[in-house]
Every structure is written in structure tokens, then in C-alpha cells.
Design a protein around this nucleic acid. Structure first.
Lengths: 345, 345
DNA sequence: CTGAAAGCGCTTACAG
DNA sequence: CTGAAAGCGCTTACAG
């Protein structure tokens, strides 16, 4: 497919031009200390003169290493994953690794296909945000092949590998504690699906905070939905249809929270006043949206950076047992969440 | 670096196991019609049994093609480029190409380094959103090497290659025509830098619409700034300090427009009422923000898809002269832009 | 329909 | 400090 208009310059040509052997040229090129300064300079001059392009792929083939890393996420058109990519790409860049991107749209079949493709493309390692409920078998296969894999954000049952994620239980807890401190007693948990390990964590935090405050949980206030804009709208509609709606809602994530707020506004209700809203993740939209979202920050970029660093350490041979990096979330108080008593901002 | 715990299974092993030669195994694997059904099945059974992983990189080396494409953009943490990536990735995926990502942060030096890295990584082609004012020499080098390169969004002087972008002149014109139709007579052009080909196009449309309506342009109403949130704030501050401010502002892009609106709100002004705002691009935030932005859609994803398709055609050997794909923009009327006469929404 | 040989562009021992 | 040889894992002519 790739056309070569001009004669392709290889190391062979450079070596001949510089009057040395291929091996010497190879060592000179990579700055080996076994090569005399004079020779190195001669080789470099030849490289420049001939317009030599180093073929890193051929080099990797021979030396059995890899300059790429696979990144598999749910989708790109999602601020959470965009931010994750930013963190990962930025960090990997420092190590001279390039990322090969794949999106699953939460399909287990696509995930398996992508995992195979990445293998075929000789990635040095994988960062995977796993499809909920997908098989851990292909993941453990990487371990057997000696190819490092780190799971990011979502845990996967049965997968024995490194993990980087936020403390969802803690995140759920601080969100609810904040709401309780504000005087709320009936607090909904809106959106997301129990298949997601993140959902279960946040729910557990929700439960624990209630228990610690001696508050009972009304199960009708826990409304599941897909973690999309549309899912958020469905959830808030169900909530508003309840005989006695709550005064506050903790949303599975900011996408849900924004959708909920928009729906409230569209029916003439004021988010923050008529229903206090707390989100999760602190995506960039959270500050653009009005009201500015009170939310639990996942430090998404940091998550990505941790995953990249951990993976890089593994590729470099750190052969320790599986490790987890858990980022501590933080409550970011903004405008979507006011006192239930005073009904005006 | 890459550890191989288990004995690595190569085509050699598969061939031996299936009782055929390496060449036959290679052909069978790729479904060549020169191989009998029986042999193919035998080879496939062996592949499965041995857990064979096809090495696409080695294959590409030998057959001199490439399954990767380089994408070089300004930055990832920018909705415009995120959307572009979505379109490109989605389309390239169909062709079985993986993208190698690079970000320049608008540094010419980084751009040159990335271009080299991509070359070293044997990309089959490049999609580049060029750093303004960067040299066209490295770009034309790709042409000489026979590696297709398509410029996206931003034009570059002196670069002889394919281009995909939006019709900025038309975009500027329809924005201003809309404002004029609404009754505005003094219209600012806010943000962006003349180094950007997109800025110059939009500015030209701004000029033309004024001329066609017989309106004079007040040059103090054209305020340059970096195309960032911060730049937008600076621009609107300068505008508000003017002795006789305009009734409407056409913003270089949506990021600027959102920053402008937020600043207006922060000083107690109402965007849309006190100052009509039109943006450009229609990034996802435009619908989340309040007021919902009236803007000129660049059809960002479509732009990306066009670029991917064009590049793919070039890689497949379409050896025609440089081609431009110009997407027609469209005005998306939402809420940030009301009549200057009636001072209430 | 299948196999033996050469080679893609590089690096890695091994000599000297 | 430098070179000749072998080989990474595959595909491509060329025979038969």
C-alpha cells in the first residue's frame, strides 16, 4: 500500500556512506559508548546527508520491545474518557510511548476483538476500562503472556491485575454527608447501573453515610438508569412522579447530574433550590453548566497519569504482585446544592 | 523490555504442527484462494490449539504496508479536537487502521518532532492540524516520501497537499447576516488571532456581510485574543471598556463565546439581551451552556470523517493532485442572540 | 495446490 | 573500538 517514491534509505546505505559496518552504524545511531566520537559524528553526518529515517518498528521487532501502549475505553465522546485520555497520553508521552486507541461502546465482543488487535499490534502493555460483566479470561491471558495490563476506573471480577481508580465508597459517603449536614433527610441516588463496580461503590458510600447518621434509606429513592444524558432524564422523571419526592439527589455522575438539572429547569423547577444536586467526577462541563455543579472530584486526569505510570513501571519489568492505586476523591462545593430550609439562594 | 513468559508461538510452530510449510501457513492464515479448504482448516485448527498470535507488525515490515495513521492536533483537552478525534477514529476504525496520537500545543518544534516520530513509526499517512506559521517544508517532505498527508481545519501556506475544512468565509457571513437581520448595526468580532487561517476566513465573511449590507466596519470592534477561555475574557473586557460598545458580538469560536457570556453574567449583564452572541463550531458544550449558544456549526465530526476517508483513499493509492473538501457550515439558532430592540427575552 | 529460499530493516551476541 | 553472521516473525516471488 505504502508507496516509496524515492529510494528508501536504510541503515545499510548510511553505513556504506560513512564507511562503516551496519552494526557500527546501528550502535552509533543509538549513541552507544562503545563507538568513538569520530565515528559517531561521521555516521550522523551520513544520516543527515542521506535523509535517513530510523525504522523504529523494525528495531522493535528485532529487539523484542514495543513503543506502543493500548488504551481501551468505552467511548471517546464522553468528557470522562476524554479527560482520562488526556492524562494517560500526557504521561505516556514522557516515556516516548504512543497510544493505540480502542473504544468498546460497552460491548464485550468489541472488547475481545480490540484486545486481540492490540496483541497483534505488539503493544507493550494495556490500559483497560473494562466492559461491565465481561470475561476476565482474556485479561488474565495477558498476564500469562507477560504483557502488563492495568485496569482503570472499573474493576472486573476475577481479573488478577493492577488497578487504578477512585475511592467510590468514600466519594459516595462525603457526598451524602455534605447533604445531611445541609439538613437533607430524604436523599435520592440517581442513575447508573449496579453492574458498574463504580456504582456499587458509590451506593455503598450512600448507605454507610445514612447508617452513620442514623437515617433510614427509602429504596424507592434509589433509581437506576443508564449513565447517559437520556438515562438521567428518565431517572429524574421517575423521581418527580413519586408521592413524596426527596429534597436532594446524589447523582451517579456529572452527566446524569447535568441532565437532571436541565430537566428540572425545563419543568420550571430550580436545581439547588427545589432539589439539591450533587454529581460525581468533576468533568469540565461541571463548571460551565449553570448552576455550577457541586460534585465529588474523581481527579480524572490524575487517574490517567497513575495508570500510565504504573503501566510504564510494569513494562520496565517491575514484577510485583498486582497493585491497586486508589485516588481519594474530594467534594467540590459549588452552586447546585443549597440548604433545604431557606428556599432562596 | 517485553517479557515472554511462555514460549512465543510463531507461524513456524503453527506450520510444523499442521504439517505444512511456513509459506502455506501464511497464505492459509490470510485466507488465500490458492490454498485448499482442507489445508486451511488444518492450519486454523493448529493456530487455535497453539494459541497463535499473528504479528501484524512483522507482517507490515515485510509487506511494506502500515496499519497505523498519525493524527497531530493542538491539544486533547479541547472539545473541538476531541470531537475531531471522535470522527477520525470512528471512520479509521472501519478501515482497520489504528491512530497514533500527537499533540503540539501549537509549538512548531513539537510539531516537527512529532512528524519525525510518526515517520519512524511507519505510519501509512498523517492527518495534521498544523501549527500556525509552521514551516511547510516537513509537510512537503511527506509528499516526496510518498506518504499521504491531509491537513485538517487549518490551512498552511506553501503546503501542497489535501485539505479538509469548513467554509469559514461563509460561516462568518451567515453569522453576521443573522445578526443584521435581527437589527444589529454595530457588531464586534471577538477573539482569535490573525495567524489562524480560520480567523482570516471568518473575518473575511464578517467584512463581506457588512459590505453587502452597506454597513461600515468599526475597526475598534475587532478584538484579537488567544482562542482560549482566558483570551475570551480579555476580549470582552476590552469591548466593554469601549466608549460606545456594540449590541452584538460574533465570537471566533464557542470557547470564546462561552467565556464572553460567563463574563457578562459575572458583571450582571445578560448575554443575548444586553449583548447578542454568536459562536462558531457548535461544540457539545454549546447546548449545555445557559444560554444555549447560537452558533455556526463546523460539523466537527464530519470534518474528521472526511479527513479519514480522504486519507484512506490516498493510502490506497489514489494518486490525484491535491484536493480540498470544504464543508458548508450552518447557523444553529438557539438562545444567545435576541433582537436589540426588545430588551427582554 | 504447496515448499525452499530470500529478504523487509533493524539489533545482538560473538570475535578480533 | 569495529565487523561478519545470525535472526526478530513474517511475506513474496519463484519453482514444481
Amino acid at each position: 500500500m505504502m508507496k516509496q517514491k524515492r529510494r528508501h534509505v536504510t541503515l545499510e546505505h548510511v553505513a556504506t556512506h560513512a564507511g562503516v559496518s551496519r552494526s557500527t552504524a546501528s550502535l552509533a545511531l543509538r549513541g552507544s559508548s562503545h563507538i568513538s566520537e569520530a565515528t559517531r559524528e561521521r555516521v550522523q553526518a551520513s544520516m543527515r546527508e542521506l535523509g535517513y529515517i530510523y525504522d523504529r518498528v523494525a528495531a522493535n521487532l528485532r529487539s523484542k520491545d514495543s513503543s506502543t501502549v493500548g488504551l481501551i475505553i468505552m467511548e471517546l465522546a464522553n468528557p470522562f474518557y476524554s479527560e482520562l485520555l488526556v492524562g494517560i497520553h500526557h504521561e505516556l508521552d514522557k516515556f516516548g510511548k504512543t497510544v493505540i486507541l480502542g473504544t468498546t461502546f460497552d460491548s464485550p465482543a468489541i472488547q475481545e476483538r480490540l484486545l486481540s488487535t492490540m496483541l497483534e499490534n505488539r503493544v507493550g502493555g494495556i490500559i483497560l476500562s473494562a466492559v461491565p460483566g465481561s470475561s476476565s479470561e482474556p485479561i488474565n491471558r495477558f498476564r500469562d503472556l507477560g504483557i502488563p495490563l492495568v485496569l482503570i476506573n472499573r474493576k472486573l471480577q476475577g481479573a488478577e491485575c493492577d488497578f487504578v481508580g477512585v475511592d467510590n465508597v468514600e466519594g459516595g459517603r462525603i457526598a451524602i454527608e455534605h447533604l445531611i449536614r445541609k439538613g437533607h433527610r430524604r436523599i435520592a441516588f440517581l442513575g447508573g447501573l449496579p453492574q458498574l463496580s463504580t456504582w456499587r461503590g458509590r451506593k455503598q458510600g450512600y448507605d454507610e453515610a445514612h447508617r452513620m447518621a442514623g437515617l433510614e434509606i427509602d429504596p424507592t429513592l434509589v433509581i437506576e438508569s443508564r449513565a447517559t444524558r437520556q438515562g438521567g432524564i428518565e431517572a429524574i422523571q421517575k423521581l418527580l412522579a413519586l408521592p413524596s419526592p426527596p429534597t436532594a439527589a446524589f447523582c451517579y455522575n456529572d452527566t446524569i447530574a447535568i441532565a437532571v438539572c436541565m430537566h428540572l429547569q425545563s419543568v420550571g423547577l430550580v436545581p439547588g433550590r427545589d432539589l439539591a444536586i450533587v454529581g460525581f467526577d468533576d468533568i469540565p462541563e461541571a463548571t460551565i453548566f449553570s448552576p455550577k455543579l457541586t460534585t465529588v472530584s474523581s481527579y480524572i486526569r490524575l487517574l490517567g497519569e497513575h495508570a500510565a505510570r504504573l503501566l510504564h513501571a510494569r513494562i520496565d519489568g517491575a514484577d510485583a504482585p498486582p497493585q491497586s492505586v486508589i485516588v481519594q476523591p474530594e467534594l467540590i462545593v459549588r452552586d447546585s446544592c443549597s440548604d433545604p430550609a431557606k428556599k432562596s439562594e
